[in-house]
Amino acid sequence: MEELLEILEDIQPGVDYASCKTLIDDHILDSFGILSLVSEIEDAFDVEISPAELVAENFNSADSLWKMICRLKGEE
């Protein structure tokens, strides 16, 4: 989780990722931000994120992102 928070901070600094639950709904992460995040997550956690995963439920908070990463790791 620490590593994920670092990635998020690196991509879009100045957001309280530990508590924010509306990264997509409030347009904090736009399409470009999402793609940068996907690329970094894939490299850091060795998972493959498909277009089907690019939904608000998975990207709205650090917590939901972490759950997605754990699920994808479990599926491999």
């Binding site: 399409s31 793609l35 996907v38 994120i49 498909s50 277009p51 690019l54």
Partner: peptide, 8 residues
């Protein structure tokens, strides 16, 4: 259906 699939 185009932007994300092409990007990934």
């Amino acid at each position: 259906y185009i932007f994300y699939p092409v990007s990934l």
